[in-house]
Amino acid sequence: MLRPVLTRLLGLVLTLLAISAAVFLVMSVLPGDPAAIMLGTSARPDTLAALRSELGLDRPLPLRYAAWLTGLLTGDLGRSVTYGVPVAKLVLAGAAVTLPLAAMAILISLLLGLPLGVAAAARRGSAVDAGVSLFAQLGIATPNFWIGLLLILVFAATLGWMPSGGFPGWQAGAAPALTALLMPSIALALPQAAVLARVTRTATLEVLGEDFVRTARAKGLSRRQALWRHAVPNALLPVITIIGLQFTFLVAGAVLVENVFGLPGLGRLAMQALAQRDVTVMQVVVLLFATLAIVVNVLVDLAYLALDPRLRNAA
């Protein structure tokens, strides 16, 4: 059990190191001089040179990477070139929007996807099943940011029930903040719910077909009991996998949805930093996204190891 875990953790560290170097390299050779962007078109060459040296842009690349990495490891994420505030502050503020948004989206997709999948499996071949199948096909095919636009059009612009965007901040209270996140998280959740419904249905049907369930049925368990006692719990394993694999898409989707709804999250932060050539912010946000994706994937791997004994030796 220990060896495969250690191997994966070592792989994780090496991958993260490689990614940090790649991110740093790509971001550092950006054409477009942050100094020129800040000082505008009237800046004189000596002014630009002064700012570049102030920002440390005149030092050699490997030195800058080493300094950056040391900073990261000691918890110093650097200072935003444009805002002049610590990157950590910006990232934390962004995460306070993006993480709740992602969590709400996962919750909604579970609340919607699981029951739909189980219902479709329980009444296989019925109109319910066909309806779920249609929902799944449509949901998977629809871009989440377009769903966001439609939600704004209907519930904000036409009916006026919901704010059309923006974020009041958590200090305004939980209720207004959660309200502001509701439509964005629904937009993010619908395609995920469609995927989950599909996976849950298939997994449930597969378990229902397995020997131990048939034995239980033969011993007098009703179809309904078999469904809830055996099929659904056992179908959760593939569902967990899917949530893990979908995480990457959720993060990418958050960038889009935050832009649609004007939420000051990590995705918007990254887009703004890109436009302003705020390299220090870009590096940290990109690295953070990539790290999250990798860590979640490794966690899913490990969860699989823990839950499925067959894999322990095979690994």
Binding site: T15, I19, V23, V26, M27, V29, L30, P31, G32, T248, F249, V251, A252, V255, L256, A270, M271, L274, R277, M282, V286, F289, A290, T291, A293, I294, N297
Partner: peptide, 15 residues
């Protein structure tokens, strides 16, 4: 695989 296309597109767009 850790870089969703939107993320790599943001990075690469600079290049």
């Amino acid at each position: 695989f850790a870089f969703p296309p939107i993320l790599s597109a943001m990075m690469l767009s600079a290049l």
